[in-house]
């Protein structure tokens, strides 16, 4: 059984997080960059399974700038056997579609029975990447799981939505994404750090994966302009002297909200 975990490095939610007004990208240089906590929980799902099932291979996969090596090493120190880091200048500002293509191509190279991801990242908050990857790979996907059971040849879990908790299952190979309802991940220890140094860390470029980031035939989301959010102006205060309803309706109509 080979489990690949999609790991993402993000600016620490508890620290400074800013967007550059020039590039529209997160300022990585000024933020404290860490593994997204939900992806660590995804890693825990894989590692916990591997602890209980000898012969399980856990592989970490990340698409991230060069500086993310510390985070990649942390995945290895936590217990992943190997890691793949896709780095390419052509991926700066990549949208979800391109990122999904890259991840799917990398997964094709690595091979997998199960892919585990976080449900959505704390920076981009797209939430659709795992489904896109599954689509590209032509395998089933179970997303937003608050509980996961891996039992070859199947993976199952509870999918949470606003209206209901749904029990879902799929035949492997499959892609799953998990929520932060899953247990807090383990953290590395001294031996893990030392062992990580001897583990394989594969660095791949777009060329290696045969992907053209500039392919104009694909539909892409790109950033055209970015502006500082205007400062908040004082709102309108309606005091009720019998005609508040009319005033409210007037305000909404004026702003073309009704």
């Amino acid at each position: 059984m080979k489990i690949v975990v999609l790991m993402k490095e993000v600016p620490n939610t508890y620290g400074e997080r800013t967007l550059s007004l020039e590039t529209g990208l997160a300022e990585r240089a000024t933020s404290d960059n860490v593994l997204d906590e939900v992806t660590e929980r995804a890693m825990e799902v894989a590692l916990a399974y591997a602890d209980a099932h000898e012969g399980t291979q856990v592989h970490a996969l990340t698409v991230a700038p060069e500086g993310a090596t510390t985070s990649v090493r942390k995945c290895l120190a936590m217990g992943a056997e190997a890691a793949t880091h896709v780095v390419d200048d052509g991926l700066v500002g990549a949208d979800l579609g391109l990122t999904a293509e890259v991840i799917a191509a990398a997964l094709g190279r690595i091979g997998f029975d199960l892919v585990v991801a976080g449900n959505q990242s704390t920076d981009g908050m797209g939430g659709v990447l795992p489904a896109m990857v599954a689509e590209l790979l032509g395998v089933p996907h179970l997303t937003n799981l608050s509980e996961v059971t891996i039992a070859e040849p199947e993976v199952a879990g509870t999918r949470v939505s606003d209206d209901a908790d749904v029990q879902v299952s799929a035949t492997l190979p499959a892609v799953v994404s998990v929520t932060d309802a899953l247990p807090e991940a383990r953290f590395p220890n001294f031996k893990g750090i030392m062992a990580a140094k001897k583990k394989p860390l594969d660095v791949l470029s777009l060329d290696d994966l045969g992907i053209d980031a500039e392919d104009m035939t694909a539909s892409r989301t790109i950033m055209l302009a970015i502006d500082q959010r205007p400062p908040r102006t004082a709102g309108v205060k309606i005091t009720d002297s019998g005609d508040a309803g009319t005033q409210l309706a007037g305000f909404l109509a004026e702003n073309q909200l009704i």
Binding site: F187, P188, N189, I193
Partner: peptide, 17 residues
């Protein structure tokens, strides 16, 4: 070196938990 810095994170996390 980077091993010591990685270990620093381990100790910090240990204290936290």
């Amino acid at each position: 070196d980077e091993d010591h810095e990685a270990f620093r994170e381990v100790v910090k996390e240990f204290i936290k938990r």
